[in-house]
Every structure is written in C-alpha cells, then in structure tokens.
Design a protein around this nucleic acid. Structure first.
Length: 277
DNA sequence: AACTGTCCCTGCAAGC
DNA sequence: TGCTTGCAGGGACAGT
C-alpha cells in the first residue's frame, strides 16, 4: 500500500520525465479524475513541459510550464508506470500521458480508489484542500521532537491514531505506523499524552530511520496490492517488516513476544507486547 | 477532542 | 468443479 516510502520511490522514478513535453493524454475512466473532468486533465497537460515532480506526504504533484499542476494519489492500489508509448497497456490503465520521447506515463489502478487531478495553481485551495492541511513531511521537513511533544500534550488518542493523522505528520500509513511504533518500542495503543519526552525522542528517531530505510529499499511490496516503482520493480522493505503482517509470529527484536494483532480505527495494528510498552 | 461509520472497488477466499 | 457471496484493504471525511 503506497505510503511515504513508496510514493517517494515513484517520485524519484518520475525525475526521468522532468524536461519532457506531454504531447497527448487520454483518460479511460472518468472515476479517477472525479474532482474535475477527463477533459480538464487532457486540456491541462497536453502540450506542456514537466518542470518538477514534488511529493508532500502521500501526494505527488507534477509541476508544468502551463498554469496547471497535476496531483496524483495512489491510495491502495494505484501505480504510476513509465513505459514505451507503444507497449500494450496493462488492465486498469486509466490515464496515459504520452511524452515527446516515445515514452508514456501511465496511471494504473484496479480498485480506482486513487485519483489524478489537474488544477490551476490558484485553485489549489478549492480543488485539493487536503494539501494545505498536511502536517510536516518527515523527509522534506523533518519532524522535530518539540513539535511532537506539543502535538501530544494532554491528548488521549492512541499513538497509532496520531501517526495515521496526516495533519500531524504527513506520509505515514498503516504499515509504517506499526513499524515506527515498534522501532520506538512504544505500544501503538498508548495514549499519546502518556508518552514522555524520552519516548518522543525515540519516536521521532524511529520515524526518520524507518522511513529512510524503507525509501532505500524502494518501499514495501505486499502480496495483493502489488505496489511497484515506475519501472515495474517491486520494493524489498517487506522483508524487513518486524511487526506488520506477522501476527502470532515471534518478535524479531526481543525474541520473546508473539506479535499481537489488534484493531485501531478499523485498521489492523501489530505490535509486540513484550518490547513495546 | 475523540470517536464511529461510510464510501470508494476489485480480487480473492470461503461456502454452497 | 463452478458458481455465488462476503469481505479485506487504506485514506479521507462527514457525522455524533
């Protein structure tokens, strides 16, 4: 499931299209452009040059020489692929943007939870209001201990909930939320207000370390959702998961606890009851 | 502030 | 074996 490391891997892959011109675009399924329209996307990108690809949390934003930007969110099963323009598109290819070098950017998404939205820069607050509400990005901005201490003070919500809140920290999803809690040796079920300063220091360290390691590994590719980079390559960080998807197995860190699965905010949550408190 | 519920959709697993 | 049904899965957001 694409979270910060997977989206960052895609962003880096998209660097090879910076400087290229989009010569044509097609939309096969209107659902993925639900906020605007297929025609808005086509008109917005046809003929423009890609000048930069940014990432904020799990959001990708393509900047162009035109007055439009393109926001892409992969949600659960979205993929962005760069292929030869004349290769056969896989099933569930919903958007194709053909470049001036015979390559093509494709948005593929079996479940169509993901979306691709073109919008004028000045319309950003109306069309993609979530972007403004995002908290700091661990890779781009870094997460300061002081900020987290303030965000947690006096709050009762569970740590896992807070980590999944994109307005607190941008980019953490279910997998990395669990892995970060484990690396910080704090239970995801702990109320955030009960985490002391030393715990917050471990947590901010864990956020940076886990996400950086996952980016270095090209993200996590799980069985069903089939996350891959723009070249179709799978990530390898799933091989280093210490708790996610390891229900009932022995903790790889302490060697004593059995990984427990609970549900927090209707999300499966994994932790070691022995080394996470 | 802190929750719960809903929606989006497909593929797979379980059940008949 | 082949069909039908149920539901997991992540994130945003509306509602309480």
């Amino acid at each position: 499931m694409p979270e910060l490391p997977e989206v960052e891997t895609v962003r880096r892959g998209l660097n090879t299209v910076v400087g290229r011109r989009i010569v044509s675009a097609t939309v096969g399924r209107d659902r993925v452009v639900r906020r605007t329209s297929a025609q808005t996307l086509i008109d917005g990108v046809t003929g423009v040059e890609i000048t930069a690809v940014q990432r904020r949390g799990k959001y990708l934003v393509i900047h162009t020489t035109g007055d439009q930007r393109v926001m892409i969110h992969l949600r659960m099963s979205g993929q962005v692929l760069i292929t030869a323009a004349d290769s056969a598109p896989p099933a569930h290819t919903h958007v194709r943007m053909t470049l001036d070098d015979r390559r093509e950017i494709r948005f593929v998404d079996p479940r169509t939870f993901g979306e691709v939205v073109a919008y004028r820069v000045r319309d950003e607050p109306e069309v993609v209001p979530e972007l403004i509400r995002l908290g700091p990005d661990p890779l781009v901005d870094g997460i300061a201990t002081k900020y987290v201490v303030a965000a947690f003070a006096g709050r009762r919500r569970r740590l896992k909930d807070a980590l999944l809140d994109q307005s607190v920290i941008a980019g953490i999803g279910n997998i990395y939320g669990d892995e970060i809690c484990h690396a910080a040796r704090i239970s995801p079920l702990r109320p955030v207000g009960s985490v002391n300063r030393r715990g917050v220091v471990r947590l901010t360290d864990a956020i940076h370390r886990v996400l950086a390691d996952a980016v270095a590994a090209g993200g996590s590719t799980l069985g069903d959702a089939q996350y891959v980079g723009v070249d179709g390559a799978a990530g390898t960080f799933q091989n280093h998961h210490r708790v996610y998807g390891r229900t009932g197995l022995r903790c790889r860190t302490c060697g004593r606890g059995l990984i427990r699965r609970t549900v927090v905010s209707q999300r499966s949550t994994h932790h070691c009851p022995v080394c996470q408190r």
